[in-house]
C-alpha cells in the first residue's frame, strides 16, 4: 500500500518498444563492431527499450547522499533517445545518523535534453539535467506524523514520504558495446536538489532563508547493462 507511489513510475516505463529502425541510429563508434551504417547528428546514446522485455533494466547505479541514503543502489531505464532516465533506488542510512537504521526507497526521473558536441570521442557530456524524485523512508524509530496518535489532518505532511526536485549533469564514457551492439557507457552524475519540506520552508520565508540552506547534493555512477 505504502509503495503505491511507485506505480506512476511503472507507467513511465511502459511506452512501447521503439521502432526497430532505430537500431542502427548510433554514431559509428571506434570500439564497436555494430553494423551502424546510418549517421545522425545525435552522438552515441544508449537507445533503450529495444528488442528486450520492458522490465529488463538498462543500467545499474550507485549513489551517495542527495537525500536518498548515505549509499543507495538501484536499477534504471533509459528512453526518449537517451534523454530520460527512470531509476529505482534502495538507500541506507546507519543507526549512527538516525534513531534506528533507515531504508530510503526512491523512484526518480531525470531528463537531460542536451548533449554537448565533442566531435569524435568516447566522452559524452549532458550538461544539464532536471529531475524529480519521490522517496519513502522506512525506519522503526521514525515517529510517524500520520498514525493513530493523531486525528486526521493533525500534521499536513508525511514524515515518511518526500517529493523532491533537482538539477544536475552527467559525464559518460563509452566502454564497449552491449549485447545488442549499442554503445555501452559508464556515467558519473550529480544532483543539486531540494525536497518539499525545505522548499516550503524557503517559500514561506522569502529573504529569510538563504537558497543554499535548502540545497542538497548527491552524486553517483551509472553503468549500462
Amino acid at each position: 500500500m505504502r509503495r503505491l507511489f511507485l506505480l506512476p513510475l511503472l507507467a513511465l516505463l511502459l511506452p512501447a518498444p521503439a521502432p526497430a529502425a532505430h537500431l542502427g541510429a548510433a554514431v559509428p563508434d571506434t570500439t564497436s563492431v555494430a553494423p551502424a551504417a546510418a549517421t545522425t547528428d545525435e552522438p552515441a546514446t544508449p537507445l533503450g527499450l529495444i528488442a528486450q522485455p520492458w522490465y529488463r533494466p538498462h543500467h545499474v547505479l550507485v549513489q551517495a547522499a542527495g537525500g536518498q541514503g548515505m549509499v543507495a543502489a538501484g536499477v534504471g531505464y533509459t528512453t526518449l533517445r537517451g534523454k530520460l532516465d527512470v531509476d529505482l533506488l534502495g538507500g541506507y542510512v546507519p543507526k549512527k545518523y538516525s534513531i534506528t537504521p533507515m531504508g530510503v526507497f526512491t523512484g526518480k526521473a531525470t531528463y537531460s535534453p542536451f548533449t554537448l558536441d565533442l566531435g569524435a570521442t568516447k566522452w559524452q557530456v549532458r550538461p544539464l539535467s532536471v529531475g524529480m524524485f519521490v522517496s519513502y523512508t522506512a525506519s522503526k524509530g521514525i515517529n510517524s506524523s500520520r498514525d493513530e496518535k493523531y486525528y486526521k489532518g493533525y500534521y499536513w505532511w508525511s514524515s515518511h514520504t518526500r517529493i523532491g526536485g533537482f538539477v544536475g549533469g552527467r559525464v559518460a564514457r563509452v566502454i564497449g558495446t552491449n549485447r545488442l551492439g549499442q554503445p555501452r557507457t559508464v556515467a558519473a552524475y550529480y544532483e543539486l536538489g531540494t525536497n518539499d519540506l525545505y522548499l516550503t520552508s524557503a517559500m514561506t520565508n522569502l529573504g529569510g532563508l538563504p537558497l543554499h540552506d535548502i540545497l542538497t547534493l548527491g552524486f553517483g555512477v551509472k553503468l549500462d547493462l
Binding site: 533507515m102 543554499h212 540545497l215 542538497t216 547534493l217
Partner: peptide, 16 residues
Amino acid sequence: CLLASCDLIEFSPNET
C-alpha cells in the same frame, strides 16, 4: 560550499 562545509551532502532529511 563543500570546502566551506555548508552541509550540502545530505543522506536523508531525517538524518541526525
